[in-house]
Design a protein around this nucleic acid. Structure first.
Lengths: 176, 176
DNA sequence: TAATGCATGTAACGAGTTACATGATTTG
DNA sequence: CAAATCATGTAACTCGTTACATGCATTA
């Protein structure tokens, strides 16, 4: 159950409307937890019903009208509880690895094209992360929250680096 | 839609019953695509209805009786199609990274305990993969299918290595 | 006023998870 | 024969995805 907590985190950082949240997920948050606007609206409804967030008072409460949410004390408490609670690490589940395994039994025709395409995409993503690193993390920012956010970005950089190197090696293994 | 293709791959490797598949997923296949027996039975039903697999003729077709499946030509064709077809890389979506981001706003109390626990688990998993490597991939096995299967295992090893190193670094960042 | 963009939603579906149910076979 | 184990399933729920619907505001 991570989506509600992703939303709570975003709203603690800054109260927002559904669409603003969607845009923020498309940018920074979505790099490690993506969500569509449909998911976000559905979850905002639940969080409000459960008393974890509330809509800021607005003169015109109608459809098509912007609606800002903020986190209530119960929501902040739930977020703190969830953040430190024991959770099992996500088990690996990756379609590309599965496809290589299946290529071992049905043949490798066309697989290398896909591997090369993925290599390109991962190189692009790696570049994007490096740009964010330059832009958002100058050396002078070194408080604990900055170090945490930086560690998260570093995980993204390391994972993309892994994919790039692994794909390069696997492609050269296939060409032998 | 990866589960049906994971099952097709497993059945091409070796015709099996539902429970045998479940055990095989718990061992090798599940290391990069896990599935429970409920998912497997449901999917076997669909694959049979769609004419991609068939149950081997059996004298006693009753509940509680073992039922073996094999892949039909249509199933093999579909598997080959899917293996080479363009698919987008999975976007990163990891609860632990999300929790670090939220720790940046609600505080880091108790987070280090979780990080240490995960570090332990990833070290164990890495050891498991290295054991499989020694057992299943002696240097003399070097045909293309072997190289592919080995590349998949290598991805698992590299990913666990990433987690171990990243967690070590992040923990020392937090302790500073 | 027609079209475009902003903003909030609904509906339907597929996939994964958890809990439970049922029959057959082995073994103490 | 009772209990444990093997084997196959059902049911209910959550989460993520895709497609579509509705209302308001701006501007060409």
């Amino acid at each position: 159950m991570s989506l509600p907590h992703a939303i709570l985190t975003a709203l603690v950082e800054k109260p927002s409307s559904g669409l603003e949240l969607t845009r923020r997920f498309d940018k920074s948050i979505g790099y490690f937890w993506s969500a569509t606007h449909q998911q976000i609206y559905r979850e905002l409804g639940k969080l409000e019903r459960d008393g974890l967030i509330r809509a800021l008072p607005s003169p015109v409460p109608a459809r098509g009208q912007k609606k800002e949410y903020e986190v209530l004390p119960d929501g902040r408490a739930e977020l703190a509880r969830w953040t430190a609670a024991p959770q099992e690490p996500k088990t690996l589940r990756d379609p590309l690895l599965l496809r290589l395994r299946s290529a071992a039994v049905v043949g490798t025709d066309g697989v290398d094209t896909e591997l090369r395409r993925h290599l390109d995409l991962h190189r692009q993503q790696l570049e994007t992360y490096r740009d964010i690193e330059k832009r958002d993390f100058p050396p002078e920012r070194d408080a604990v929250p900055d170090r945490l956010r930086r560690a998260v970005l570093q995980a993204g950089i390391d994972l993309e680096t892994f994919w790039v190197e692994w794909l390069e090696r696997t492609l050269s293994e296939l060409d032998r």
